[in-house]
Amino acid sequence: MSRFLPHPLLSCALTLMWLLLTRFSLGHLVLGSAIALFAGLAFARIEPQAPRIRAWTPLLRLVGIVSVDIVRSNWAVARLMLTNGRHGARKSGFVRIPLRLRDPVALAVLAVVLTATPGTAWLEYDPEAGTLLLHVFDMIDEAEWHALIRDRYEALLLEAFA
């Protein structure tokens, strides 16, 4: 299994995508699977470590939380744009947040989450100190951002990735 399918998730996703983009038929299934297997093997050369996901439930909960947050922050940022940043009172700022996460895949997921949510932008991660530099669009309280990232996203990611 691990020899011919080093990245099962990647290969599965690629096969699925191939079938979605073409009309379903046996030929496409075979061709798509072959390409996905080959891509998995090629990817194993670049990135030998497949992501180890310990638990799926925290990930599903994260998806739920994040979709709610994206809607909320979209609304917040759109309103800020329309009111010209609460008529000039909006302040943006940089926040440096210490992270406990070390797993590269988990960090990548966190990056997707933070960037997909309008209002926070991921600028720089320092792997030695384990700190993350964020830019926050509407900075009200710095401590609140620390707490938000630690409790809302990081805790779930720590649970999900071994």
Partner: peptide, 25 residues
């Protein structure tokens, strides 16, 4: 709105947030 913000906001780091409106919802 995102494009408007891209044009309207003052600093680059603020402008970095503007296109995320378009790319998310």
């Amino acid at each position: 709105l995102g494009a408007f913000g891209l044009l309207h906001l003052k600093s680059f780091y603020d402008r970095l947030h503007a296109p995320t409106l378009g790319t998310s919802w």
